[in-house]
Every structure is written in structure tokens, then in C-alpha cells.
Write a protein that binds this DNA or RNA. Structure first.
Lengths: 179, 179
DNA sequence: TGCGCCATGTAAATTGTTACATGATTTA
DNA sequence: TAAATCATGTAACAATTTACATGGCGCA
């Protein structure tokens, strides 16, 4: 399982809390990885046991206390070993809309167009958010090569998705004119 | 969970066996859905209990016997209801290579290029296979709108992935010349 | 003679999701 | 004043993966 590598990769950039890692997952990594806070906290505790990371407890007034995790030498070695391994597992995707698309033979033109429009809108929002994030952060010294290439992927992925939706719309219109 | 809808969608096109469904998943739907044979067989049995599908046992000489599943009216209603529902869950993606890419700050130019080349090769194989499948089947009367649009997606997705890899390669070369 | 294909299943283990639990501060 | 944010965790449940189990046929 790769959640541990995902967490190690992020912590290797700078020490972080579980909450920060969780927000990074849901805000920035959604188009290539996903997880929930309950899974992240559990995994972080396991990883500390394995001594891939170490934590410092930070007392705060006003807001709740927190644990800051730092990667260890052992953790860095473990991560690097995985990064360089030859066996790269193929992506695992569960795309509900594509699944619906595969059953378009059961729907009318109107129904398909309605679904497509909703998805185009959704993807446009994702695209705008990614571009905004990229623009707001690219001058930041913390913005590294990994952030650059994955943000670029996010943009290309959303653009492709929208283009595909429009292609499908054209095809649907064409087919229903034909009937 | 949507595996049941995935199966219903496929069975709605024509009666199929668990084995046929399983091969469709691993050969054709990999870029938008994945499952294993053990999960598929279990799910099919549950779905028959729910009366969304019914089965006919087919005795064969030479090869093992099999069960052919057909969708019921109840199953069709259930599927259609899901197809038209407004809440379309966002795609859940676990892309190990993108995860590695997000940790590229830990690798050298040479190491990154090595990984990229392997992925480009992999994606080119996927792309060729999808195009071949599309070409070999588009004249088939069973090749419907769902097959058309999802195959198109597969092609666009793989093309985008390759373009992204090449963009990353250029960026990596640029950055290491800069140092 | 060993591997892959056809064909279906169960059991065990791991992963992932949702709900429960707490509680102060900030924002609408 | 209700919801969202910060912050961390556990428990129960659901989904998924890997291993176990069987066995004939065709191919190299």
C-alpha cells in the first residue's frame, strides 16, 4: 500500500502535522491520490512506530494542540528505495461518470446532454482552482519540481476531460440527428 | 458502491458470464474502473439474490460449465435510476507514478528520466492496444455509443499522459542545465 | 511437462469509509 | 447562532486484494 509513501513524500519536503497532510490530500492531490483523515492519523501512528517519522507535540493556546512529524533517515531510505523501484503499479481509477458513459445506450440525447453539462461545469471549476493554486504558489520557495509537474498534470487532465465531454456532446447530437 | 452498476451496465447490453465480465474489466475498462474476479463473482451472486439479474446454467463438454446472467426489469429500473441521479461522485484515482512525481525533489535528473521513459513506453503500449481494439470493433453491431465514448476517452487519456511525460522531461532537462 | 486459458467459487487479510467523540475559535 | 476551521483520534462497517481450491484442454 502506498499511502505511507504519499505521506513520507510530503513530510520529506518539510515537517507537517496530520491535519496539514489531510488538507493537502483533499485540496491538491485529489486528481492522483485520495485518503481520509481517519486513515491518515492511523497510518502516521504506525509509521512513527516503524521509525520512519518522529513527532514533536506542540501545545497551543486557543487552537487544539498538534503533533508535528519529521522524516527520519530510516524513513528517507525507505522512501527513496520505493521511488527508484522498477515495478510501477498501473493507476487504479474509479470514475463514476465514465461508468455512466459506458451505459449511455440506455439514455436519451436530452438526458446525456444534461449529465455532460454538469460534468463540464464541475471540471471547469476544478481546472480554475488548479490554475489559481499554481499561480498563487509558483513564486513560493517551497514550490518544488514535484508541485510543478503534478499541478501541470492536474491542468492537463481537466482540460482533456472537458475536451472529451465536448467531443461526446457532438457525437450524441450527430447520432440523434441521424435517427 | 458502484461495482453492481458497472456489472448491470455491461449485462444490460447482452447476457454475459462472470468470466466475460471479468475480462472486460481487465482488458477494456482499466482506465476508468477496476475489479477482481473474486469480487465480481461474489457481487453477481448478491445481485441475483436481489433479483436484478437472473442466471442460466450452461453445461459444456471439454470446458468448465458456466452461468449466463441476464438483467431483469427490476435490475434495469435500478440501473436507470442510478444513471440519472444528480449526485455524480468525483473520480477516485490512485496513480502511483504521479505520487512518485510529487517526490521528484529527492531524485536526480538521470533517475527521473529513467522512470519517465519506462512510463512513456507503458502508456504507448496502452494507447496502441486501445486504438487497435477500437479499430477492430467499431464496425461490430455490438459496438455502441458507450463503447465509442469510453474508447475515445482511453485514447485521449493515454495521449495526454504521454504529452505530460514529455513536458516533464523537458522541464527536468531545463532545470538541470540551469544548475 | 509446465504454463496459460477457461470457469467459478471461498477465506483471510488488508484497505478504505463513515460514524462517533471532543471542544475552542472564527466567520457568516 | 449555526456552520466551518483547526486538531486528533477510535470503532464499526464496507470494499478490495491476495491466497487457496479445483480441473480439463491446448499449446510450446
Amino acid at each position: 500500500m502506498s499511502l505511507k509513501y504519499a505521506l513520507l513524500g510530503l513530510i520529506s519536503k518539510k515537517p507537517q502535522t496530520g491535519y496539514e497532510l489531510y488538507t493537502t490530500f483533499k485540496e491538491r492531490m485529489i486528481y492522483f491520490w485520495s485518503s481520509t483523515h481517519s486513515q491518515i492519523y492511523t497510518e502516521l501512528n504506525k509509521m512513527e512506530h516503524e521509525e520512519w517519522i518522529s513527532s514533536t507535540y506542540i501545545y497551543q493556546e486557543g487552537s487544539p494542540n498538534k503533533k508535528l512529524y519529521t522524516i527520519t533517515t530510516k524513513g528517507e531510505e525507505y522512501l527513496l528505495n520505493w521511488l527508484l523501484s522498477d515495478k510501477i503499479k498501473p493507476a487504479k481509477i474509479k470514475d463514476e461518470f465514465l461508468l455512466r458513459a459506458s451505459a449511455f445506450h440506455l439514455l436519451s440525447e436530452k438526458e446525456i446532454i444534461h449529465l455532460l453539462d454538469a460534468i463540464i461545469e464541475r471540471e471547469q471549476r476544478v481546472l480554475e482552482a488548479t490554475r489559481k493554486w499554481q499561480h498563487d504558489n509558483e513564486q513560493d520557495e517551497e514550490f518544488g519540481i514535484g508541485d510543478f509537474v503534478t499541478a501541470e498534470y492536474g491542468v492537463m487532465y481537466a482540460e482533456m476531460y472537458i475536451k472529451w465531454c465536448e467531443k461526446v456532446r457532438k457525437e450524441i447530437r450527430k447520432r440523434s440527428r441521424g435517427n
